[in-house]
C-alpha cells in the first residue's frame, strides 16, 4: 500500500475499531451511562452541548495560549542568560532542575490563594509546567554550532551579538520547536489542573461539575474538546515550525525489517 495513505488511514482505522469495541462492550454488557457512556452517547452530548463546550473551551484555550507564551518566553530568556553567564548557570541550573521535582498539583492551590479564582493562577500553572522543556532544549540548541563555526565567525571579526544572531539563534531553532511542541501539550495539562483546583469556568471546571452530577457523557465530551484544542495547537506549531525551519534536510524514515 502507498506509504502516505497508510500513514493517514492506519490511525483512523485503529481508532474506529477501538470505538466500535467500546460501543459494543457498553451495549453488550449493559454498562450504565453514568459509569461509562457509549461513544455514540458522548458524540450526542458533544453536539447538543457544543455552545457550552465552545464557551468553556475558549476560556481554557486562552489560559493555555497565554501560559504557553509566558512559559516559552521565560524559558528562552532563562536559557540564553544561563548560556552567557557561567555564574548564573552554576547558581540557577540546580534550582531549575529541583523545581521540576515539585508536582504542579501541589502549587496550584497556593496560587489560588495568592491570585484568586480568575485567569492568572491557571496561566501561571500552565507557564510553570511548560517552561522547562524550553530551558533544556534552547540550552542544547545554543551549544549546537561547532567550535569551527564559531572560529569562522570570530576570524571574520564578528561580535558576540552577531555570533548569537547569525549563528547560535538560527542553529537552536529546530530544538526550540521540539521543546515548544512538548510544552504545548504540557500547557493543556497545566491549565486543566489549574481549573480543577478552583475555577468557575473552563473545561476543567465543566468536567468537575458534570462529574459531580454524574453526567459522564458531558465529562467525556469536555475531554474530547480538550483533545481537539491540544491537537489544533500542536498542528499550528508544526505548520509554523515547517515555515521557520524550512532549511532542515528532510529526514528519511528508516524502516527496520
Amino acid at each position: 500500500m502507498n506509504g502516505r495513505l497508510t500513514r493517514i488511514l492506519a490511525p483512523i482505522v485503529l481508532l474506529l475499531l477501538l470505538l466500535a469495541a467500546w460501543e459494543l462492550g457498553v451495549r453488550g454488557f449493559n454498562v450504565r451511562a453514568f459509569i461509562l457512556p457509549a461513544p455514540s452517547r458522548i458524540a450526542l452530548a458533544f453536539i447538543s452541548n457544543i455552545q457550552l463546550l465552545g464557551w468553556h473551551g475558549v476560556v481554557t484555550l486562552l489560559e493555555i495560549v497565554v501560559g504557553l507564551l509566558l512559559g516559552a518566553i521565560g524559558g528562552i530568556l532563562l536559557a540564553i542568560s544561563v548560556f552567557y553567564s557561567p555564574l548564573l548557570d552554576k547558581a540557577l541550573y540546580p534550582l531549575i532542575i529541583s523545581s521540576q521535582m515539585i508536582p504542579v498539583f501541589a502549587i496550584a492551590p497556593i496560587l489560588i490563594v495568592w491570585m484568586g479564582y480568575g485567569l492568572w493562577p491557571k496561566v501561571t500553572v500552565a507557564a510553570l509546567i511548560s517552561f522547562f522543556p524550553l530551558v533544556v532544549n534552547v540550552s542544547d540548541g545554543l551549544r549546537e554550532p561547532t567550535e569551527e563555526s564559531v572560529d569562522l565567525f570570530r576570524s571574520l571579526g564578528a561580535t558576540r551579538g552577531q555570533i548569537f544572531r547569525k549563528l547560535r539563534w538560527p542553529a537552536c531553532l529546530p530544538t526550540l520547536f521540539s521543546g515548544l511542541k512538548v510544552s504545548a501539550t504540557l500547557a493543556v495539562v497545566g491549565a486543566t489542573i489549574g481549573e480543577w483546583v478552583g475555577a468557575h469556568q473552563g473545561l476543567g471546571y465543566l468536567m468537575l461539575q458534570s462529574n459531580a452530577r454524574l453526567r459522564m457523557d458531558l465529562v467525556f465530551a469536555a475531554i474530547l474538546m480538550l483533545a481537539i484544542l491540544g491537537l489544533s495547537l500542536f498542528g499550528l506549531l508544526r505548520i509554523i515550525e515547517r515555515r521557520v525551519v524550512h532549511w532542515r534536510a528532510p529526514r528519511k524514515d528508516v524502516q527496520e525489517v
Partner: peptide, 18 residues
C-alpha cells in the same frame, strides 16, 4: 587582530539555514 585574515576551517562550516 581578528578580522584581518580570511580563514577557512577544516570542516564544513556552511550555515544550513542560508
Amino acid at each position: 587582530q581578528l578580522g584581518s585574515i580570511a580563514y577557512l576551517p577544516q570542516h564544513d562550516t556552511l550555515l544550513p539555514w542560508r
